[in-house]
Amino acid sequence: MNSVLSSILSWDFVASGIRVTTPILLAALGALVAELAGTPNIALEGTMLFSAFVGVIISGFTQSLWLAVIGALLTGIVMSSILAYFSLKLKTDIIMAAIALNIFASGGTIYALYLLTGDKGSSASLKSLVLPNIDIPIIKNIPILGNILSGHHILTYVAIILVFLIQYMLYKTPLGLRIRSVGESPDAARSVGISVFKTQYTALIISGMLASLGGIFLSMGYVSWFARDMTSGRGFIALAAQALGGTSAYGVALGSLLFGFSEALSFSLQFLNIPYEVTQSMPFIITVGALAFYAWNKSRNKRNRDI
């Protein structure tokens, strides 16, 4: 038991928790913006995957981190635009359109990977760059605090800043007010001259770009290669984290931390004498539990038809 505790109460564990949380958090913020606009973005998974792929390919061929990041963000915009075109313009069911995009991303990245590198499994043969970790000067030398605050990945810092930015955007700016009103009562928004289409489109674009950042974290954060289906459900976990966290970016951050750390826990426990199958299924058991709680809570709320 002591060894369990000591493995959890270590800096390595905290660091790994934060590492695992980052991509989930970025995508979950994307889930939040889209959800509030009334256009739930189930395509987060596919958007992350495609962005992860595009980032590695661009960085591999151009050796430019900037181009890689820009390319990945554009991928997010394109994926969201396709989703918006089908759901908002052609009025397809947004869930169906998103599922199609996810399947397309899974197959499309493997196909493009094979065309470009001759390999169907991973892009290991392509030499790609890695986005850096950041040491904060002075703070990194303070004991304990330095460990907590400094030395994380650049995208981790970006994600933390984005939590506050997204919260500000949603609850303090005209755009946020419009996103929330369009999501809650589109007719009310339309009646005061707000374009529901433009607002939802904007929200989906923001959502897609956030997912893109989560995607490149996977392929360019600590590794330098893309592997088939490397998102392995993180886009869906992000949806769960959002559902659990509710309508504020802070809540979503907490939800993401729960999922991130439960996954990190499963890594740590692998080194103990706990069967592999149990540790591996931990994050999913927590996901199911959290979603069951969420659904139960929601169904209780739904009984009230007056609001």
């Binding site: 005209p174 007010l177 419009r178 009103s181 809650e184 009310a188 928004a189 339309r190 707000i194």
Partner: peptide, 30 residues
């Protein structure tokens, strides 16, 4: 027009509903 089914966003405040779409701004904020 005042519609029969109110065109209001229930979870927003009265003032937010009134200024929706024509929000006075200070910098980036409402």
């Amino acid at each position: 027009m005042v519609h029969q089914h109110f065109m209001l966003v229930p979870s927003l405040t009265v003032v937010e509903n009134v200024v929706l779409g024509m929000e006075p701004r200070k910098g980036l904020s409402i």
